[in-house]
Design a protein around this nucleic acid. Structure first.
Length: 163
DNA sequence: GCCAACGTTGGC
DNA sequence: GCCAACGTTGGC
């Protein structure tokens, strides 16, 4: 039985909330608090262990890709939805039928330097169709083409290589 | 801080 | 089911 081909993703996080350095320290984290159905569906239905993730710093100056992570655990219920004290509490969700799912991601590497959004936009020809460079694109979990992923690794002088 | 773009809610 | 109002995202 052939293994499913690895998929590639981009996940946004505000670095003043949770940065690539936080992930490096934690080694792994639950990608909780996502309250967007499209993003949830990607996590619930499509992200598999071993998939690679561009870790993107949003609401930063400049915003950009800070490094690489890897899906380390597939979809499971986001615990913040059951936490009454959390701003992400969802009273309509139950443990039997959780509405919000998350994956866990593990630290892979931090780029020597951030790849700014502006640099991605400047590579528009090579990165044609990449969602993060589209204006008005707010989705915080996005699929990325393998070719685009490889190009961003190069731009970030990543240690890892795709094969 | 501004505001364009987008997603969600809720009245009808 | 439509769509106006509202809330959020996120670049600048």
């Amino acid at each position: 039985m052939a293994k499913r081909a690895r998929k590639f993703w981009l996940m946004k996080s505000e670095p003043n909330v949770y940065s690539i350095d936080d992930l490096a320290g934690d080694e792994t984290t639950g990608w909780d608090s996502i309250r967007n159905y499209q993003a949830r569906n990607f996590m619930r239905d499509e992200m598999k262990e071993g998939d690679l993730v561009l870790f993107y710093h949003s609401n930063a100056s400049p915003p950009g890709v800070a490094g690489v992570a890897r899906v380390s655990r597939e979809a499971h219920a986001d615990p913040t939805q059951f936490d009454r004290s959390s701003k992400y509490h969802d009273p309509k969700s139950t443990p039997e039928a959780p509405r919000w799912m998350m994956v866990d991601v593990a630290f892979v590497e931090k780029f020597p330097e951030l790849v700014p959004l502006g640099a991605l936009k400047a590579e528009e020809a090579a990165l044609d169709g990449m969602l993060v460079i589209k204006r008005g694109q707010r989705l915080s979990v996005q699929p990325v083409d393998k070719e685009h992923f490889a190009r961003v690794l190069k731009m970030g002088a990543a240690k890892m290589k795709l094969r």
